[in-house]
Design a protein around this nucleic acid. Structure first.
Length: 594
RNA sequence: GGCCCCGUAGUUUAGUGAAUAGAACGUCAGAUUCCGGUUCUGAAGGUCAUGGGUUUGAAUCCCGUCGGGGUCACCA
């Protein structure tokens, strides 16, 4: 296809003197209802040809047929030049795909660009919820895609392990926890800590209500709350390095991390390097003071430090409080500094929700001003909220969907559906469990990754687990079916070739399948360039649908013509391979039987 | 109010300059079952929120309007 694009360029150049690098020279797939495989739109070149669209297209078509054996024939519809590609080149293309186990994937070398991608970024005072699930899936998939496109990738996680919210959980545990541990409670550590966070909030509200009854306003009551003051005092002691506070803090955080690790493992995501805010939050200060010296930032009379971004069309932004302590932005600058010391980053991607668009706009400008080479080009991979059919999740109303619960529910829903359909008959209980897990998580992941990340989305568990339509299970099922066909063939002693014969006759349907397979390389490239897992998901689904139509028209196992049967088996095997490669980029497992 | 994002069949959505806007779920009518209640074909359903503009060509780019969300903290 790239070759033919070059041919078209040289044709246009030879005939009309069009610049070879003119971006309008693009071939697209011919629409199904027209004859041909590739289409060139000639409208943009009429200025140069000084002829009608039809005449121009015909002239280019004739030139291509005459000068290249790749183009066998052409037809013209208005300004659209539809080219047919020679039969032998389709077989060649299929054989090239068959030879290449990781078809479409680029090699990563020492010299490949280094991309760091930050995702997940949990707080240590509560377990992960549905919003984190979208974040984690997008971050992980993106890192897989970028790696496949030929980048060195460092997956990183910044854990927010300090601050008033952790102190609230700690205080509640010390006051009412009675020495409970995750083991004693039989509960994951992150859930246990989350419960104490909720308990704090409850007790705090009770106290405020009591004070309000005694005649205080809401604001006065909140300020006078002894609980909240104790929490603040604990934060002060933590910052002062108080060993009693730190030992409780370390212990409780270790419980949370054990819980997170379990969740991450189940979700199938991981990290190469984890940063902790407790270790980075002081780092930004130095960099900011450096900025003051350089004149990038300035100090106000009260001692606070600000950056004036009105020149960039934004506001002024606080970076250090009058008492010299850091704010969120300062910490991000500090983390950036540490990261750049650890890795020679070419590009930095932050996977963070769209409520922080403004923050990252500012961060990009500040990092640039402070001299980070990747600051201006940093990518805020911004995604929308996840809602449920019942409506928005609100932590105050307890309608937050917990990540662990959600995964468990998806898996048991998959188990039920599979059992109903009789798919688990004859499986051992371990097999049944493994399959249910693959399907349940595949449904969840696919449903979330197939939609445009920028958009808010509604996650519908019931719809996602469907075995039909644009769902993970449907794609997994198709893969399993192809594997099953290949197994059957092998059992019957039918030879599955590694290459198709050059002289095998090839039908339109087969051409379409090969063309579709061949697109994977470009889709991957584009997905990496636009940071779009959804592109991969929709490609794989289209491939699956196309395959089902193809498969339906033939009796693969009972084909009399040996060469033809070989071609179809080879084609099927490669469809399975590309499905598996594509789904792998989304972090979704494809079972060989289900 | 300023700034940012979104608005496409009943629903979930694809398509960011090209041919008659493409699917899926649901609905209706058929076919197939060769490997499994999972397959296929067809129908109905869209003034792409809306009004202008640019272009040979606009869901897509520009301007306005309406609707939804976010953000504008010495929170993270």
């Amino acid at each position: 296809m790239d070759k033919i694009t070059d041919l078209a360029a040289s044709a246009l150049n030879a005939l009309y003197g069009v610049d070879m690098n003119n971006p309008a020279i693009q071939l697209q797939k011919t629409k199904r209802e027209f004859e041909g495989n590739l289409t060139l739109v000639v409208f943009p070149f009429l200025k140069d040809s000084r002829k009608t669209p039809e005449a121009t297209a015909a002239e280019v078509g004739e030139y291509l047929v005459k000068n290249s054996s790749l183009v066998s024939s052409f037809n013209v519809v208005k300004g659209f030049l539809n080219l047919s590609v020679a039969e032998t080149s389709w077989i060649e293309q299929l054989n090239a795909i068959a030879r290449d186990e990781k078809f479409g994937f680029n090699e990563v070398t020492e010299d490949s660009p280094l991309v760091m991608i930050e995702y997940s970024s949990p707080n240590t005072n509560k377990p992960l919820h549905l919003g984190h699930v979208r974040n984690n899936l997008l971050g992980y998939s993106l890192s897989q895609i970028l790696k496949a496109a030929g980048n060195r990738v460092v997956k990183t996680n910044i854990v927010n392990d300090r601050g008033i919210h952790i102190c609230k959980s700690m205080l509640a545990w010390m006051k009412w926890g009675d020495g409970v541990t995750p083991e004693k409670a039989g509960k994951k550590g992150d859930h246990l800590i989350g419960d104490f966070y909720v308990l704090f909030d409850k007790k705090f509200k009770e106290e405020v209500a009591l004070l309000e009854k005694l005649g205080k306003t809401k604001e006065e009551a909140e300020a006078a709350s002894s609980l909240m003051n104790e929490a603040r005092e604990m934060l002060r002691r933590w910052e002062a390095g108080d060993e009693d506070v730190h030992s409780v803090w370390r212990m409780m955080n270790s419980w949370v991390y054990a819980g997170f690790d379990e969740t991450y493992k189940r979700l199938g995501v991981d990290f190469d390097k984890i940063y902790y805010e407790s270790e980075t939050y002081l780092e930004g200060k130095e960099k900011v003071l450096e900025g003051v010296d350089k004149g990038v930032m300035y100090r106000r009379p009260d001692g606070s430090v600000w950056a004036d971004l009105t020149g960039d069309g934004l506001d002024e932004k606080l970076l250090l409080r009058a008492d010299g302590t850091s704010v969120y932005m300062t910490q991000d600058i500090g983390t950036a500094k540490l990261r750049f010391c650890d890795y020679r980053i070419d590009k930095m991607i932050y996977v963070v929700g769209n409520e922080q668009n403004y923050h990252f706009q500012v961060l990009s400008i500040l990092l640039d001003k402070l001299g980070f080479s990747w600051g201006r080009g940093l990518v805020h991979f911004s995604y929308g909220m996840v809602e449920l059919p019942e409506g928005k999740m609100k932590s105050r109303e307890g309608t937050v969907v917990d990540a662990d619960d959600l995964m468990a529910e998806m898996i048991s829903a998959a188990r039920e559906t599979s059992a109903e359909l009789g798919k688990l008959d004859g499986c051992s209980s371990e097999e049944a469990e493994a399959i249910s897990t693959m399907i349940g998580l595949g449904a969840l992941k696919y449903f979330i990754l197939k939609v445009d990340p920028r958009k808010n989305m509604t996650f519908n568990p019931k719809e996602s687990i469907d075995f039909n339509g644009n769902t993970g299970p449907f794609i997994q099922y198709t893969h399993a079916r192809i594997c099953s066909v290949l197994r059957k063939a092998a059992e019957s002693g039918i030879y599955i070739p590694l290459q198709a014969q050059e002289d095998t006759e090839i039908s339109d349907k087969e051409v379409i399948m090969i063309q579709r397979l061949g697109e994977f390389r470009n889709v991957l490239k584009e997905a990496a360039a636009t940071y779009s897992p959804a592109l991969i998901a929709n490609y794989v689904y289209d491939l699956v649908k196309e395959f089902n139509q193809f498969y339906h028209d033939f009796s693969i196992l009972h084909e009399a013509d040996e060469k033809k049967r070989a071609l179809r088996l080879l084609l099927s095997a490669n469809v399975a391979k590309v499905i598996s490669n594509g789904m792998g980029l989304l972090g979704i497992a494809v079972p060989e039987r289900m």
